[in-house]
Design a protein around this nucleic acid. Sequence first.
RNA 1: GGAGACGUCGCAUAGUCCGGUCGAGUGCGCCUCACUGCUAAUGAGGUAAGGGGUCAAACCCUUCGGAGGUUCAAAUCCUCUCGUCUCCGCCA
Length: 422
Amino acid sequence: MIDLAALRQDPEAVKQSQAARGESVELVDQVIAADVARRTALGEFESLRANQKAIGAQVAKAQGDEKQELLSQTKTLSDQVKAAENQLREMDANLDALVLGLSNVVDPAAPVGGEDDFVVIKEVGTKRDFAAEGFAVRDHVEIGELLGAIDIERGAKVSGSRFYYLTGPGAMLELALVQLAMNTAQKNGFTPMIPPALVKPAAMEGTGFLGQAAENVYRLEADDMYLVGTAEVPLAAYHMDEILEGALPRRYAAFSPCFRREAGSHGKDTRGIFRVHWFDKVEMFSFCPVDEAVAEHERLLGFEEEFLQALEIPYRVIDVATGDLGSSAARKFDCEAWVPSQERYREVTSTSNCTTFQSRRLKIRSRGADGVEPIATLNGTLCAITRTIVAIFENHQQADGSVRIPKALQPYLGGASHFKLK
RNA sequence: GGAGACGUCGCAUAGUCCGGUCGAGUGCGCCUCACUGCUAAUGAGGUAAGGGGUCAAACCCUUCGGAGGUUCAAAUCCUCUCGUCUCCGCCA
């Protein structure tokens, strides 16, 4: 939810943001009109209510005829108050519905445009030249089979398309990645968390996933619960309705399963485990003072990069264009790993600065020197397991189909240097 | 799944039976001031959030887990709901 006071002050800024996203500009004027209407209704209700309360206080003290006189006055007043209240509620609901349609105001530094208008910030690492090494690249599916690490056929048999089993070395690799990620996060000042993956509507709504992203969310009809698509949801909602005391930023790193319906991506990335309905992930989350959010965003990006570097995976960083931002994000950086079998970079991590958009919805603030202040929220992937496995298998594959284990992971895999053929 | 108790302004509690003087008392914590050489102790005052309003104030409104209802008037009465705790059942 954007800041209404700021919108009143500078509607043009919000209009420009909407335009940059390719979203409705007229909506801004509609919100302003609804806001004026609401405040009019509010004023009316409040003065009637004040009147009612004043007379009510007299009623309590009055006796006999005087009391009857006051009662007759306040009876008609009561009806007026109710009418005014209904009117106000209507205006409130109207305003809310419109405001929730407004996406976060984009950071002016974000590149303007659509999905393909991202800006490449940097490329890091060296892509291998498999031709020079003298063998044909295998993709992660093939490698997974050779190693006995990924079983996609049985995933489909048991759960359907876009499901998989990690088996043997694949299963151990996930656990190793999780441990490396959680240990790294803890060293970097994050509190390790294992959050619920099933949440109530309020948490889903508050984080902004029931808007344009709703079709990708699994809902449990019988219990009115949702399966989270990312630990961002339970982490953001962790402090819902709270005023944070003490030092900021507060950083959390959560290991959780992620469930995604992948509606609208039929036929896309159907091979392997690159795009699946369920995967596990270690996610970073930060509650941070508003004026430090940009620096914190850089830090999260830095942690993501360090992790990819530790895994010795070539990657690039892109600055996502305004039209491709989620509704909560003001700015977003993606790290894309090199995928040799596809000969292109593919997204493996993503970090967003949501400024005060999420915290406003979730009613999270902080107590600072000048009292209660708004707070910024930021999130970033530390390790999305399945995509990381794709990157490791493909980038570290050997001529015989075995896979070299990057040094940083070896301690978590019994010191082994390679995943050997099964 | 069954039975019961409870949910109040950071924490702990009073208030609910008998509706108005309760947006709400007390203790702790926290802040300011006074006093003591410092600390502690003591005394005085202050201390929920959100919104409207104002140059700034004053002032006004909303919120007593949540949603409805009764009433001129609800923390207080009624209904539903969520959560916590205790006991029983079941179970990993």
